[in-house]
Lab assay of single mutants.
Amino acid sequence: GLEHMADEEKLPPGWEKRMSRSSGRVYYFNHITNASQWERPSG
């Protein structure tokens, strides 16, 4: 619920959580730099 939404908002600017269609794993994508990574971004 609300706790999940608050957790999402802690991601650094530009980052969003996405799911890989090929593997079904969650990864993180930065739409500003077009960077993507499996680890949760910090800072």
Rank of each mutant, 00 (worst) to 15 (best):
I32G: 05
S42T: 13
M5T: 12
K10I: 14
R21C: 15
W38I: 07
T33A: 03
V26M: 07
N34T: 06
L11Y: 03
R18G: 02
S42V: 12
G43N: 11
A35Y: 08
K17F: 03
P41C: 01
A6V: 13
L2Y: 14
R18F: 04
L2D: 14
R40S: 08
E3V: 13
K10Q: 14
S22D: 11
L2T: 14
E39V: 06
G1V: 13
W38D: 05
E39H: 09
H31K: 11
K10R: 12
P41R: 01
R40L: 07
T33E: 05
F29D: 02
R40H: 09
H4V: 13
W15E: 00
M5I: 12
N34W: 05
L2R: 12
G1F: 11
N30E: 01
S42H: 11
G24C: 15
E16D: 03
N30I: 03
V26A: 07
Y28P: 02
E3T: 11
E39R: 04
R18P: 00
M19R: 13
R25E: 10
R18Q: 03
H31D: 04
E16Y: 03
H31R: 10
E9L: 07
R18T: 03
E16K: 03
S36L: 15
G1R: 11
F29N: 00
H4D: 15
W38K: 05
S22W: 06
S42E: 11
S23V: 05
H4N: 12
R25G: 04
R21T: 12
N34P: 00
M19G: 03
N34Q: 13
A6W: 10
R40C: 08
Q37L: 04
R21N: 11
N30R: 00
G24H: 08
A6P: 13
E8Q: 10
R21F: 07
Y27G: 01
R21W: 05
S42Q: 15
A35K: 15
Y28E: 00
K17A: 11
P41S: 01
Y27S: 03
S36K: 14
D7S: 09
N30P: 00
P41A: 02
Y27T: 01
P13A: 08
L11H: 01
V26I: 12
A6N: 10
P12Y: 02
K17H: 03
V26N: 05
N34S: 07
L2N: 13
E16N: 04
N34L: 14
N30T: 00
M19T: 15
H31S: 15
P41K: 01
P12N: 01
G14T: 01
E3D: 13
G24N: 08
E39Y: 06
G14W: 04
E9P: 08
W15Y: 02
K17N: 02
K17I: 10
I32F: 12
S23T: 14
W15K: 00
N34V: 03
Y28A: 00
G1Y: 12
Q37D: 02
H4W: 10
G1S: 11
E39M: 05
P13M: 07
H4M: 13
G24D: 07
R21Y: 06
L2A: 12
A35P: 01
W15D: 00
L11P: 15
R25A: 06
P12M: 02
I32P: 01
H4L: 11
T33F: 05
P12H: 01
D7L: 09
A6T: 12
E3K: 08
Y28K: 00
A35T: 14
S22N: 10
G43R: 09
V26E: 11
E39W: 07
N30Y: 04
Y27A: 01
W38H: 06
P41W: 02
R40M: 07
S36G: 07
W15H: 00
F29P: 01
S23M: 08
E39Q: 08
T33H: 04
Q37E: 02
E3F: 01
R18M: 05
N30K: 00
K17L: 08
S36F: 15
E8H: 09
E39F: 06
T33R: 03
N30F: 02
P13G: 05
E8W: 01
M19P: 03
M5N: 13
E16T: 08
W38T: 06
I32N: 07
H31M: 10
W15M: 01
S36P: 03
E16L: 06
W15A: 00
S42P: 07
N30V: 03
Y28V: 00
E9W: 05
A35L: 14
D7F: 06
D7N: 13
E16A: 04
L2F: 13
G24F: 03
D7E: 13
W38F: 09
M5F: 10
R18D: 00
E3W: 01
M19E: 09
E39P: 04
R40D: 05
S22H: 12
P41L: 02
S22K: 15
S42F: 10
S23C: 07
H31I: 15
Y28I: 00
R18W: 02
L2V: 14
L11A: 01
P41Y: 01
G43P: 10
L2E: 14
V26Y: 12
M19Q: 10
G24R: 07
E8K: 08
R40A: 08
E8Y: 03
G43A: 13
D7G: 10
W15R: 00
E8R: 07
G43E: 14
S23G: 10
P13V: 07
I32K: 06
R21H: 12
P41Q: 00
A6H: 13
S22E: 10
Y27K: 01
R25M: 08
Q37T: 04
W15S: 00
R21K: 14
A6L: 12
R40V: 08
P41E: 01
A35V: 15
K17E: 07
A35H: 15
L2Q: 14
R40I: 09
K17M: 11
K10H: 12
H31E: 09
S42W: 10
F29R: 03
S23K: 09
E3Y: 01
I32A: 08
R25I: 06
Y28W: 05
M5Y: 12
E3P: 13
A35W: 08
M5G: 12
P13E: 09
R21L: 13
W38G: 03
R18E: 01
I32T: 07
E9Q: 08
P12R: 01
R25L: 10
P41F: 01
A35G: 06
P41D: 02
S36M: 15
T33V: 03
V26P: 08
Q37W: 03
G24A: 05
Y27V: 03
A6S: 13
F29V: 06
M19Y: 15
Y27C: 11
A35E: 15
H4S: 11
E16H: 08
R18S: 04
N34R: 11
S23W: 04
R21I: 13
R25V: 07
W15L: 00
S22C: 15
S36Q: 09
G1E: 13
Y27I: 05
M5A: 14
M5L: 10
K17Y: 03
P12I: 01
V26K: 04
E3H: 11
V26S: 05
H31P: 09
E39G: 07
H31Y: 14
S22F: 09
P13N: 07
S23Y: 05
R21A: 14
L2I: 12
Y28N: 00
Q37I: 04
N34D: 04
R18V: 06
N34A: 06
D7Y: 05
N30H: 04
G14P: 13
G43M: 14
E39S: 04
T33S: 06
M19N: 06
E9A: 08
G43K: 12
G24M: 04
E9C: 14
V26Q: 05
G24K: 08
M5D: 13
L2M: 14
E8T: 09
G1P: 12
P13W: 08
G1L: 13
K17G: 02
E9K: 06
K10Y: 10
P12S: 02
I32W: 06
N34G: 15
W15T: 00
Y27L: 02
A6K: 10
K17T: 06
K10N: 14
L11V: 04
S23N: 12
Y27D: 03
M5S: 11
G1K: 13
A6D: 14
F29A: 02
P12F: 01
S22I: 14
A35M: 15
P13L: 08
W38R: 07
S36E: 07
M19K: 10
K10P: 15
G24I: 03
Q37Y: 04
N30G: 00
L11D: 15
E8M: 06
E39T: 06
H31W: 14
N34I: 04
E8G: 09
S42A: 10
P41V: 02
K17D: 01
Q37K: 04
Y27E: 05
K10F: 11
R18N: 02
W15V: 01
I32E: 10
H4A: 13
P13Q: 05
A6R: 11
D7T: 10
R40Q: 07
D7R: 07
